[in-house]
């Protein structure tokens, strides 16, 4: 008993005060990309060739980057001869609309979108892993640890869809998980939400061209919140949830 108390004192208090205080992110973290309004050199398409997920498109005003597909590998930014594409350390990448994830020099990505007041104080989610690689799942799960303390925001991952306000789907949705994903959604009482966590759930991610996957939950159900990343940083996920609740900064 004495040991338990002593260790409790040693381990200290670790919960972060988010969003009041900005989270600490690593120096090399790649967050929300920015695209400068500089014309590309004629004929240059180096970034397109580097991208593993075809997230880039060349428009007359320069490249446009789809965060819904992007795995944030940074290959495009490294290859760009004039630093048109740069990645900021802003972890706030979530959007309520699919178009809000597309970033170009003329459009820095729309504002995250309107909150749903009904969920302002409480959000209960059933997490469905549909061929997710366990990175997005782990970074959802970590939100329940004391550092993030998900419960203190009124958010929780619940065991049964009957108790949930919606589903948070990770993974590209394999054919073998298609029915189970739809069944879980059907078991959630109305009004209900669908949250796509990670590039795979939004667009299929790196598995977009796999014949065994469905290009994410977006291809199967209407999505209320998109949280890009591969996987999204836990702070990005929490920011997404708070955005939906109208409690983000």
């Amino acid at each position: 008993m004495f040991d338990v108390v002593r260790e409790r004192v040693r381990q200290g208090y670790r919960t972060c005060r988010y969003p009041a205080l900005a989270p600490e992110l690593p120096e090399r973290f790649l967050g929300r990309p920015r695209i400068a309004a500089a014309p590309c050199p004629p004929g240059c398409a180096d970034c397109l060739a580097q991208c593993p997920v075809k997230a880039l498109e060349l428009r007359p005003q320069g490249p446009a980057l789809d965060m819904g597909r992007c795995v944030f590998c940074g290959a495009c930014a490294r290859t760009c001869p004039q630093k048109t594409i740069v990645f900021s350390r802003d972890h706030r990448v979530a959007s309520r609309s699919r178009e809000g994830l597309i970033i170009s020099s003329t459009d820095p990505g729309q504002q995250p979108g309107k909150a749903i007041p009904l969920f302002r104080r409480s959000l209960r989610l059933r997490q469905v892993s549909a061929a997710g690689c366990n990175a997005c799942e782990a970074d959802c799960n970590v939100l329940t640890t004391p550092v993030f303390d998900l419960g203190s925001y009124g958010i929780d991952f619940v065991a049964a869809p009957r108790h949930a306000d919606g589903i948070a789907v990770t993974g590209p949705v394999s054919e073998n998980m298609r029915q189970a994903t739809l069944d879980t959604f059907d078991a959630v009482p109305d009004p209900r939400l669908v949250i796509a966590v990670g590039a795979c759930a939004i667009s299929g991610g790196i598995f977009r061209d796999s014949g065994e996957c469905h290009q994410g939950v977006s291809a199967l159900l209407p999505v209320d919140l998109y949280i890009p990343g591969c996987p999204p940083h836990p702070w990005s996920i929490l920011d997404g949830f708070l955005t939906l609740m109208g409690r983000s900064r």
Binding site: A131, G132, P172, S174, E175, C213
Partner: peptide, 8 residues
């Protein structure tokens, strides 16, 4: 359930 056909 998680089969994504990586090897192929």
């Amino acid at each position: 359930f998680q089969h994504r056909d990586i090897e192929r």
